[in-house]
Design a protein around this nucleic acid. Structure first.
Length: 237
DNA sequence: GCGACAG
DNA sequence: ATCTTGTCGC
């Protein structure tokens, strides 16, 4: 997929809501368009990790898009953009704050990619329209959400073990569907990290993606790199 | 009414 | 997310 073209197309009809009621309506429409289906990891050559950092004083944001080889995790391309922030942080409405700078960064990417990984939840959201799902729907690209804290959903009791991690599934108490998982390093007392379905992936695929991009640290390597690049223009005085 | 609350 | 140095712990 040619990410820059999809980003420019998505930018055309992206409008910031004037009220939270309007934002909620948009999210309900987004949720209807989310498509849950397995992906074949073998077909993924390039993936993109995204992160956005904020400058408290200038009110600016920096969005970083890191294209990496899905097999080797080697970085292939990086884009960092600066943009004014035009929407406050309100839990449940993160997408309206971060999607504009994210689309800007994605529009700068020359590489093609088959998957996007972003910081934040996908379907694990009160209206099933978290950042990862919202972004995936407007781009029409597969997305997976990775978050450091849980916003919505109930953690199931059963614990699964796979490779060096253990996880418990998380379901939406309103639909009774499993949309994500709480993951910890096997044996160790690490703070959990949360993975959820974004768009055009299913839960199994999302977990496989996480297993693919993680390393010995809590935050998967490509997301750590995106975080680092999103802060490189920060000025220290 | 009270508490919770991605980044 | 951000404000921030040294410092407690594996």
């Amino acid at each position: 997929m040619i990410v820059s073209l999809l980003a420019l197309k998505a930018l055309e009809d992206f409008k910031l809501p004037k009220t939270l009621e309007e934002a909620r309506e948009i999210q309900l429409e987004i949720a209807k368009r989310v498509n849950i289906k397995p992906i074949n990891p073998v077909k993924i050559r390039n993936a993109i990790a995204l992160d956005v950092s904020y400058d408290k004083h200038s009110g600016k944001s920096h969005a970083a898009a890191v294209v990496f080889d899905f097999s080797s995790l080697e970085i292939k391309e990086v884009a960092v953009v600066e943009q004014e922030l035009n929407f406050p942080y309100i839990p449940g409405f993160l997408a309206f704050r971060e999607i504009p700078p994210i689309l800007d960064a994605l529009s700068c990417i020359k590489s093609e990619a088959e998957l996007i990984i972003c910081e934040g939840h996908g379907l694990l959201h009160p209206r099933r329209a978290g950042l990862a799902s919202h972004l995936g729907v407007i781009l029409d690209m597969p997305t997976v959400g990775v978050a450091k804290n849980l916003l919505f959903g109930k953690v199931d009791n059963k614990t699964f073990f796979e490779e060096d991690i253990e996880y418990r599934l998380i379901f939406d108490p309103e639909t009774n569907e499993f949309y994500g998982a709480e993951i910890v390093k096997k044996g160790l007392n690490y703070k959990p990290i949360y993975v959820s379905i974004g768009h055009l992936v299913d839960l199994r695929s999302s977990l496989l993606v996480f297993l693919r991009i993680r390393d010995r640290f809590r935050i998967p390597k490509p997301l750590r790199e995106a975080h680092k690049f999103s802060r490189i223009y920060r000025k220290k005085d």
